[in-house]
Write a protein that binds this DNA or RNA. Sequence first.
DNA 1: TTCAAAAGATAGTAAAACTATCAAAAATAA
DNA 2: TTATTTTTGATAGTTTTACTATCTTTTGAA
Lengths: 234, 234
Amino acid sequence: MKHVLHIKMNDSLFLRNPEQSELGKNIIKYSIEFINKQGFEVFTFKKLAEAIGTTEAGVYRYFENKHKLLLYIISWYWGWLEFQIVFLTNNIDDPIVKLKKIIKLLSTKIEDDLSTAHVNEALLHQIVISEGSKVYLTKQVESDNKHHFFKPYKDLCKLIGDIILEYNSKYKYSRSLASTIIEMAHLQNFFMQNLPSLTDFGKSKSTSDVIAFLNHLVFSSINNIDLENPPKKK
Amino acid sequence: MKHVLHIKMNDSLFLRNPEQSELGKNIIKYSIEFINKQGFEVFTFKKLAEAIGTTEAGVYRYFENKHKLLLYIISWYWGWLEFQIVFLTNNIDDPIVKLKKIIKLLSTKIEDDLSTAHVNEALLHQIVISEGSKVYLTKQVESDNKHHFFKPYKDLCKLIGDIILEYNSKYKYSRSLASTIIEMAHLQNFFMQNLPSLTDFGKSKSTSDVIAFLNHLVFSSINNIDLENPPKKK
DNA sequence: TTCAAAAGATAGTAAAACTATCAAAAATAA
DNA sequence: TTATTTTTGATAGTTTTACTATCTTTTGAA
């Protein structure tokens, strides 16, 4: 039997549920393609409508504005990713193994998950890297937060933070380290591709270097108990 | 004698040098105030012009568009910050002390530097936190990079990376760690204020916690030589 | 079959993001 | 000091974005 994965979304993100119609699914599908190719600034409902073969007003019936649509697809990604992590780390006891798998998952190119027909996760992953922070770097962050639009991201952060604590319950920065892992897995990839001198991976441009860096960073930190006096080298 | 600090800017960022006229300086000054208060998305040249008492066309004579203007003020900030760091760490030999001073500087609220009359660094620091990544998270990043618009940021990253190497010349991730320090000093502050559950500092909302986290992260990592097998706890 | 909901077609508005022109004022060079 | 170049001010116009409104046709569920 084929398993179909469904991500439960916050109702306030849309006016009409895009998953419940062909048009809605097309809006999601082509938004992802358009934003990935041209960038969020260039993306408009009019251009999207033309690409789908509907009208601008048609898109507005589903989403209030493009910011909400971006929030929708990014939230969807975090929900999907959380499931991937739960699945990937299921039945594994060792938190070291779990953390390494998570770092790898966050840093590596994602491939399209065929159990979600209208969403291309490979493209969505690229969007999260390039556009992800634009959903919270706004003056409406407080209001959006009150509507729980960042819950999937927070849940993911808690999930990772709890695994960190599972490994070292005395570690004082589990949430901050978790958000650092998520953000840096993406940002170091972006820098490596676009501004390589901000990284040490400009030559190889290989995600395995990003993974090695994050592993080193994370495990050095959570293995180091003495917070005030970190061990001297040699 | 009063020392007047001047930051040399990339000529391609502007059409007419804003530092060479009253109007130009007003454009910078009120842009910083406006973007800080209302956010970059809401900011337009028309609104800015009204606030200054000039016309939209007047602003367009100085800057091609608002993206260039943002690049200008953010670049200015990185240039200014690099000078602060050079000044702050001058005559200090110990790279540990230098790194700690840098982490503190990056994480703490900045106060207005009176030697730069038309720029309020306190506000600019807030802008860099909330809007800074928008200058490179675009599809034009490659073209902007070719014009060397990110040089001040890269220079800063190199400066910090070199201090890391000064401490531990075997450390393989000096640039990536440097960019991580810069980005995380800002992002953890933003999260702490706006999405506190992504950090461990929601209760205190204190920058000293951000500093402690970064110090722990950075020194744990650069003290840890054995890259493949980080020391086990206990 | 019927009738409500969704989609299509079309129109319209306010604001954003520019470009162009010409005259007045200010700075500077001869 | 006058002449001339540069900068600013005032005004106008265009295209695109970001919506809202209305009316008709299609669809699909009871």
